[in-house]
Design a protein around this nucleic acid. Structure first.
Length: 230
DNA sequence: TCATTAAATTGTT
DNA sequence: AACAATTTAATGA
């Protein structure tokens, strides 16, 4: 019962770091090559094992990257919010996608064809810099996670998930106030809604977030990150 | 604009 | 998982 996707591709691109250095004509040309598809809540944006033909961005909504662990339990690798792009790893290596992408709510998803991605890679320094920063940030996130995850309690996992979702380096357009239900936070952190609720209350008591109806406000991103160990 | 109702979300057990 | 309480959104007077 989330609001239907409202943002459009143009706004999303203009708020992306890599797009800001392009000439308006270049940007409109790229915009024309990108397809936007609307995905209902809980739907698959793309599945593990599929051939990777696009770089994928979140125009509106919220998605998560999940993987199935050896025992078959779904594990959320990370969430991606408005303005986020992903899939460049498999696109660069020309390999099948390594994880499922699932929408947590009704979302608008942008699909940039491989040819467009490659052309940007060849012509835009800002685009290359963006990818470098993004890969580095992700690397730091995942290293921090595998380092701490088994030692961390549910509270810290929620903190870590939120910190990655509010990462200003990856998602400059995301404000510190995000409309996300506690149920969705639970999905992101791999917890039940009840446990996510307790974790959020603990984080609020610690002064890191402010809980509102249907959303949260992040008061201390650095605190969240250190809380989660990443 | 206000009151009523339904739906969504949250807090608790 | 189930329940009650609270908030929001929608509807109509």
């Amino acid at each position: 019962m989330n609001a239907p996707p409202a943002q459009n591709l143009g706004d999303m691109l203009r708020s992306s770091l890599w797009a800001q250095s392009l000439k308006p004509a270049e940007l409109t040309a790229i915009e024309a090559e990108i397809q936007v598809r609307h995905c209902p809540a809980g739907g698959f944006v793309c599945r593990k094992g599929e051939r990777v033909a696009h770089w994928i961005g979140v125009v509106d909504g919220l998605v998560k990257m999940t993987n199935l662990s050896a025992d078959g339990k779904p594990t959320t690798l990370t969430g991606v919010g408005v303005g986020g792009w992903f899939g460049e790893g498999s696109l660069l290596k020309d390999e099948p996608r390594r994880y499922d992408i699932v929408t947590l709510r009704d979302s608008a998803i942008a699909y940039m064809p491989r040819a467009t991605f490659m052309q940007l890679l060849d012509t835009s320094i800002a685009f290359n810099r963006f990818l470098l920063i993004q890969l580095n940030e992700r690397l730091g996130q995942f290293i921090g996670r595998v380092e701490h995850d088994r030692l961390l309690g549910p509270d810290a996992r929620v903190a870590s998930s939120l910190a990655s979702l509010f990462n200003p380096t990856l998602y400059p357009g995301v404000k510190n106030q995000l409309q996300i239900s506690q149920e969705e936070i639970g999905y992101l952190a791999g917890l039940s809604r009840q446990r996510a609720n307790q974790a959020l209350q603990a984080l609020e008591k610690a002064g890191l977030v402010h809980i509102e109806y249907g959303g949260i406000t992040v008061l201390d991103i650095a605190g969240l990150r250190s809380f989660g160990g990443a």
